[in-house]
Each structure stands twice: as C-alpha cells, then as structure tokens.
Amino acid sequence: MSWHPTGEVIVDKRGTSLILSGRFNIGLNMIKKLIGPVSRGDVVIVKDENGEFLGEGFYEEIGSVGVRMLAFKDRISLDLIDERMKNALDMRKRMKLGNYFRLVHSESDLLPGLIIDFYNDIASITSTSVGFDARIKDIANILIKLGARAVFARNDSRTRRQIDLPLWKGKIAGEGPSDTIIDEEGVLFHVDVLKGQKTGFFIDQRINRISLRRYISKGDNVLDLFSYTGGFGLHAAVEGANVTAVDESDYAEEEIVRNAELNKVKINFIKRNVKELKIGGEYDVVIADPPALIPSIDRKDAGKKAYLTLNTKIMNIVRKGGFIFTFSCSQFLSQEELKGIVIKAGDKSGRSIKLLDGVLGQSPDHPVDPKHPWTGYLKGFIVNCT
C-alpha cells in the first residue's frame, strides 16, 4: 500500500481548529468534501475550507473517525514513521526497562491507532487504524530492523470488534515461536503473544506490581482477584506470602501454574468468575485489577455500580490494618470518580480508610498525551483499612 496521497479531504472550521491544536483524530462529521479517488486506508492531503494545507493523514471512515492525522503541516512517508519508532525506542532505552516494554503507545508516540509491545526479541502489534492495517507489513519490517526476531499481529481486540474491523492474529514477519520468558525485577513470566490476552501480557501494571512488594510481609495471606497469569500474586509469593489467585480463564490457570514453577513458589488458584465467588476469611492484602467494567460510555452507570460492588466486597474481607490495591483500566472512569467509589465503598462496609502513595498509574513506557487523555486510562489506589 502506497504512502503517497490519493486525494484530498476538506475539513470544516471545527476540524481545522482541532488539527491546529495538535489533535490526531478528526471526526467524520467534520469532513466537508472529498476530492479525488479516496478509499478507506488511503493517505490523504488535509486542507481547510479555504484550501490551506493542514497536513496529511489516513482516511479512516471507521466508527466516528474520518481522518487520523499523521503529519501536521508536513507530508507522510515511511521514513517519517521509521523516525518516530526509532525515537520511541530511544526514549524506552533511557527508561532502563529491561527485556520487555511498550514501544509505541498510539497518540503518545505520534502514531495514532497503533500499539506495539516488545518481549525480548518478539514484537506484538495491535492496530485500530485502517491505514496502519493496510501497511502492517511495512511496520513489521521496521521492527525487524529495530531488533525483532519475529513480529506478530494481535488484531483481535474488543475495540476492533466494536468498530467493525476484521479480527485476526498471526505472524507477519521473522522466524521462531510466539512465546518467551520475561524478567520483572527478578520475577519470571512466560508470555505468549498469540495465546495471551491483549498483546500477551499487561505491561502497564509493571510499576504497581513491583510497588506491591513493599507492602508484603512473609506469611501474609494475599488474595489476587482477576489474576490473569499471576502478575501481582507472583510478586507477593516471592516475598513469602500465602497467595490465592482467582481468574475464570483456562489460559490463566495453565500459565499461573507454569509461572509459579518458574519462580519456585506455590500459588493456590481458584478458577471462577469473581462476581460469583463467595469469599471467606480475612486477608492481609487484596488486589483487584478487573477488566474494564465500563467498556463504553453508554454503560457507565452500570459500570460504576459494578466497581462499587467489587470494592465494597473486598473491604469486607481485608483484615484491620490490611491493604487493598484497587484499579480501573476503563478510559471512561476518571481518577476522581474511582476515588469517590473507593470512599463510598469504605462507608458501605463500615471501614475507616486511608489512601496511600497518591494515584497509581501506568508504567512509564505507556506515556500520557494530555491532548488525548484516553492514553492515560489506568488508575488505582492503595487503601489501608482499619
């Protein structure tokens, strides 16, 4: 697929204002006119109503998005994409992130609609852009030059389903298997970029998993809800805690057993939906890292109730003086809203609570672009209950 424009898009005053302010995603309803043979995924020249050149982008026509801008007052080229990916890699190298990291975080790395994660020498791509879908082999070739042994696509996300993009996954370039072992501050995890959720692992929680260890003492009883492959639970187990992990996935059960063996620790795994789990006893530390309970804006009220129910439930089982690590990865729930839910859960459960360490966020390889606030989706709190 060509990186040269096939036609022009004329945007209205609102679209022009957004582009001039540095916004990447321009709505379909802001497009006044198409000039020339323009198809979904094409590179297009973008102009205002007076014919003034604003830049270039992908013509998307998907969901509510009409154009994804890639170059402001500039032209798109494969060299430009290559340069942005190299700049993204240079920044991650300065972070000293070890053998796995997010290389590209969509708008935050000037590549809207594109996510790329590295696990050792395996790269995993997720696209929500028709333009990047059409050029995914070009992206894979850049990644091979940047050190990837093999590049895989994980284009089977819920977001793609919601915006009616085709769902698929598989190898795009390179050689070798889709799995590897990563090391997170001495804790080992098996990652398979084709079988696991998202791109294979939840890199965004790296700093929070490591922070958990400060709150764990040998012999603590720890409950890890929505455990997936044991990220939080394994860090607690390495510190000598008695860990119970809960997840409903067959893959999670298989992998948490494998990861426990890798780290020479024991974890009690319960395969069950957390909503159906009847929890008894008292725990020194409880971690609740659910999937997005507000998957779309129209389900926000129901999702807020679900977060309140969950947080009230876990406050009823943490011992006096114990700790809760509670999170939301929903872009539709703000930090202040989650904080309000936590406070309300404390009131409902009759617990006196304190919030520690401020607001927990995502790993620094998931930078937040303030002009595109959804790039900062993860938030959480450490709660001390008395």
Results as ranks from 00 to 15, higher is better:
residue 16 T to P: 00
residue 56 E to A: 10
residue 44 V to Y: 09
residue 345 A to L: 11
residue 50 N to V: 00
residue 272 R to T: 11
residue 318 V to M: 02
residue 250 D to L: 15
residue 145 K to Y: 05
residue 226 F to M: 08
residue 134 A to S: 13
residue 81 I to L: 15
residue 23 R to E: 14
residue 54 L to N: 05
residue 142 I to E: 02
residue 188 L to R: 15
residue 183 D to H: 06
residue 54 L to E: 06
residue 317 I to C: 08
residue 324 I to T: 04
residue 301 D to L: 04
residue 283 Y to S: 06
residue 151 V to G: 04
residue 32 K to M: 02
residue 164 D to F: 09
residue 320 K to R: 12
residue 256 I to S: 07
residue 150 A to V: 15
residue 336 E to N: 10
residue 247 D to T: 11
residue 204 D to Q: 01
residue 195 K to A: 13
residue 257 V to H: 09
residue 169 K to Q: 13
residue 318 V to C: 05
residue 372 H to R: 09
residue 164 D to Q: 08
residue 183 D to I: 03
residue 233 G to E: 05
residue 384 N to M: 12
residue 321 G to E: 05
residue 10 I to C: 00
residue 76 I to Q: 03
residue 172 I to L: 15
residue 312 T to Q: 02
residue 149 R to Y: 07
residue 171 K to C: 05
residue 333 L to W: 06
residue 62 I to C: 07
residue 52 E to N: 09
residue 321 G to F: 11
residue 191 V to G: 01
residue 180 T to Y: 10
residue 385 C to A: 15
residue 295 P to Q: 14
residue 60 E to L: 11
residue 363 S to I: 00
residue 105 H to I: 12
residue 23 R to L: 13
residue 372 H to A: 14
residue 193 V to G: 07
residue 290 P to C: 06
residue 383 V to R: 06
residue 306 A to E: 11
residue 201 F to L: 11
residue 380 G to Y: 02
residue 371 K to E: 13
residue 220 D to A: 14
residue 236 A to K: 07
residue 356 L to Y: 05
residue 30 M to Q: 14
residue 286 V to T: 01
residue 358 G to I: 01
residue 274 V to N: 05
residue 78 L to G: 04
residue 16 T to A: 11
residue 293 L to F: 15
residue 354 K to R: 14
residue 206 R to I: 02
residue 337 E to G: 09
residue 311 N to T: 01
residue 179 D to I: 05
residue 184 E to W: 07
residue 124 S to N: 08
residue 284 D to A: 06
residue 252 A to W: 10
residue 258 R to P: 03
residue 129 S to T: 10
residue 307 Y to T: 06
residue 322 G to P: 02
residue 19 I to P: 04
residue 364 P to C: 04
residue 74 D to A: 09
residue 130 V to S: 01
residue 285 V to T: 08
residue 233 G to S: 08
residue 322 G to D: 12
residue 375 T to A: 08
residue 249 S to K: 12
residue 43 V to Y: 01
residue 382 I to V: 14
residue 238 V to T: 09
